[in-house]
Design a protein around this nucleic acid. Structure first.
Length: 718
DNA sequence: ATACCGACTTAGAATATGGTAA
DNA sequence: TTACCATATTCTAAGTCGGTAT
């Protein structure tokens, strides 16, 4: 699906440029087609089976069901009655509630068959974040203060990452699906309504190093003449110089925005002289920085040491009873804004963040971090309804930036877990929802029909919700609910198929269809509807659900029991790839792709040659053995055989690697792996087939998914 | 209602790292 | 030992979504 690669430019103001862009896109498409043809199981035009989720992933074109007409997916008659469904849902919810209210007594009287499961679940849930003794310890948290590490922190802080007991889940049955209700309930036990922590202490952010003026010998030229810039103007100039090799600096908008902001930093004299960016010569600066980068590489050892020190000092905080890794404790340095796509603000100056911009968040009983000497914080607050430690307002969009915890932290892990549990609940009712939205296509109410079509796209194509965004503030991009007429084409018949909807955000070769587009305008309404269908259901849950279920399906389908580990890993990657394609996680083909493929190929060739040699040796050894028949020659034969085997294996490994890399040329696996695939599916698969988890998850990923690694056994079902 | 904003997740590019070939 | 490359990590932009102000 190319939907997202087209999002950048559908404003057709500049015709020439646009054509250029389209051309590029087209080329991309062709490349994709080529790749597609390698995998015959994927087709360009997708048919929608009556009751299914995503079936094919590379589709640009989707066939819509027979009963929809060209004049709108919406012109579908009939009435629809939700009430039955809604009522039953409501009843269900009610039941849940009462269950929870008197939960304690219920344990004794409940004859429900799920009872034991429920109980186990509860235990598990309590175990998840902290071990029992730690829970007990939390009571003294506030009393003990001023520890040697400078934190006035509670006792028994766990150094989490190495500690595999951290998430201490039960080893027993994990199959019963938890309803998030349970998690909420448990959350409520520990943290009533929205409370995220009780104790939070940290050292504050690390600021960007101050600007160091350029050495005298590095010159800036204006209109061919040397010019010494004032420190402020010089600093901003260096931001541009550092990007000189980048395509950005050739873009009109980028240059215009940069120049405007740069001039603001100039002295009056400078402003008078420097009136045109094209007369500026930054090449010496640029070269100087390149040399600096080189030099820094040489002393990377000292640099590393320094970084480690910084990490140790500022990279951790204490949240409740745990010492937790902080994700981004360094404040973003000043520079030029690099928006993605056709961003109207690219090139603008991202100003330096000062302590006076910073809001510190920590608990009242924590030691407040001290601002750098001579400075003070904008504010210190104690808001335990949020998870961030530090925030500031950025000057490009005026949005707030945060310092938060690492994915390995308890607070992030729990949330992640919860996310997949919600997706699993969707699994239980997805058929019902699919039937309903198909019914809703026939509704006489336009809004209902629109909503149903939007939902269908979200489910079928894993589209994002598509919130409204401020025009002119960001690049013009769309999602499901913000699709515009120019992004869609309906064909009663195309390439031999009937009723085809063509999504083409660039609209290159398509004819415009000037009619109302069958999509919901306001996502709020959509999400409200989803909430009625299932508690906690929002548009993005479909992405999570469809991604995870696809991984599970694909793994089942692709894993051949007898194949060796490298082949299994290829199968895993292919399953992962199916998901990445579904979610449209693309990447620019690596700059060195061709070369690296060639390298690999020559390795393969070399290996083949070795193998041929080894086989020849084996043959002659066998011949010798036939004649001589002594123990020594037999041994030789054996060792030659082994050598051949070893080489065969190595060759196979290389070939698998080549296939994998080729298939992965413009697909990014990381995003789905990190954000959409229930890690327990992967853990279970690894256990089932004896694939070491390290082959699939690197260190960081293992840390992030520690909860799942502990939790899932080989029978886990999403 | 709608607009707006705050908090949080998701995302690909840029950069650093560390192992291996030369 | 260095150059090179693949992979891991960092960086921060750009989404989603729900709550609150208008």
């Amino acid at each position: 699906m190319l939907l997202f690669s087209h999002l950048d430019s559908h404003k057709h103001k500049d015709k020439h440029k646009d054509r250029e862009h389209r051309h590029k896109e087209h080329k991309k498409d062709k490349e994709k087609d080529r790749e597609k043809s390698k995998h015959s199981n994927r087709s360009i035009v997708v048919q929608v089976p009556p009751h299914s989720g995503p079936s094919s992933f590379r589709s640009l074109v989707i066939q819509i069901p027979r009963h929809s007409s060209r004049l709108g997916l919406l012109e579908i008659g009939l009435n629809l009655n939700h009430s039955e469904h809604k009522d039953s849902e409501k009843k269900h919810k009610e039941k849940e509630k009462t269950k929870h209210k008197d939960g304690s007594s219920e344990k004794h009287k409940d004859k429900h068959k799920d009872r034991d499961k429920e109980k186990r679940k509860e235990e598990k849930v309590q175990n998840f974040p902290v071990e029992k003794e730690e829970i007990k310890a939390s009571g003294d948290a506030k009393i003990k203060k001023e520890k040697e590490n400078g934190f006035s922190s509670p006792p028994r802080i766990k150094d989490e990452p190495e500690d595999d007991g951290y998430f201490a889940p039960p080893k027993e049955d994990i199959k019963p699906l938890k309803r998030p209700r349970d998690e909420d309930e448990w959350e409520e036990e520990r943290y009533p309504e929205g409370i995220k922590w009780k104790f939070l202490e940290h050292k504050g952010p690390v600021f960007a190093p101050p600007y160091e003026p350029l050495p005298e010998n590095v010159k800036f030229y204006y209109d061919g003449k040397v010019m010494k810039l004032s420190p402020k103007a010089e600093e901003v100039a260096t931001f541009f110089a550092k990007m000189l090799d980048h395509e950005y600096t050739t873009k009109e908008i980028f240059r215009k925005n940069f120049f405007k902001d740069w001039r603001k930093e100039m002295t009056n004299e400078e402003k008078n002289i420097i009136t045109s960016l094209s007369k500026c010569d930054f090449t010496q600066m640029s070269q100087y920085f390149k040399a600096q980068t080189e030099a820094r590489k040489q002393m990377s050892k000292e640099e590393k040491l320094e970084n480690e020190k910084l990490l140790k000092e500022y990279g951790f905080c204490v949240m409740d009873n745990h010492r937790e890794r902080i994700a981004n404790f360094k404040i973003e340095p000043p520079g030029l804004f690099r928006g993605r796509g056709n961003h109207p603000k690219m090139g603008m100056l991202k100003r330096r963040i000062m302590p006076e911009d910073i809001i510190i968040n920590c608990s009242k009983d924590a030691k407040v971090p001290s601002p750098p000497p001579g400075h003070k914080w904008k504010e210190v607050r104690h808001d335990n309804k949020v998870t961030w430690l530090v925030s500031w307002t950025e000057n490009i969009q005026g949005s707030i930036k945060y310092i938060m915890l690492n994915p390995s932290s308890r607070i992030k892990g729990e949330k992640d877990w919860q996310k997949y549990e919600t997706a699993r609940r969707l699994k239980k009712c997805v058929d019902k929802i699919r039937n309903q939205y198909r019914e809703d296509w026939k509704s006489k109410e336009m809004k209902v029909r629109q909503r149903a079509v939007a939902l269908y796209f979200i489910d079928k194509l894993a589209l994002r919700a598509g919130n409204e965004k401020e025009e002119g503030e960001t690049a013009d991009t769309v999602g499901c609910c913000s699709l515009r007429v120019e992004h869609i084409n309906l064909h009663p018949e195309l390439d031999g198929q009937e009723y085809v909807v063509e999504f083409d955000f660039l609209g290159k070769d398509s004819i415009r269809y000037y009619n109302k587009v069958p999509v919901e305008k306001r996502t709020g309404i959509l999400n409200k509807h989803l909430q009625d269908l299932m508690e906690g259901l929002t548009a993005k849950v479909f992405r999570t659900y469809n991604a995870s279920i696809t991984l599970q399906q694909q793994l089942k389908e692709l894993t051949a029991p007898d194949e060796n580990i490298p082949a299994k890993i290829l199968s895993y990657n292919r399953a992962n790839r199916a998901v990445a394609i579904l979610c449209n996680h693309q990447r620019a083909p690596p700059k060195t792709f061709e070369k690296s493929m060639m390298n690999l190929q020559s390795k393969i060739d070399a290996k083949k040659e070795q193998l041929a040699d080894a086989r020849r040796d084996l043959k002659s050894a066998k011949a010798d053995a036939k004649v001589l028949k002594d123990a020594k020659t037999k041994k030789v034969v054996e060792s030659k055989k082994k050598a051949v085997q070893r080489l065969e294996e190595q060759l196979m490994k290389l070939e698998v690697q080549a296939t994998d890399r080729e298939e992965n040329k413009q697909i990014a696996l990381g995003t789905s792996k990190l954000n959409y695939l229930d890690p327990r599916i992967t853990v279970a698969w690894c256990k089932k087939w004896g694939v070491p988890i390290e082959k699939i998850y690197n260190k960081t990923q293992r840390e992030k998914f520690a909860w799942a690694i502990d939790m899932a056994d080989e029978d886990y079902e999403f």
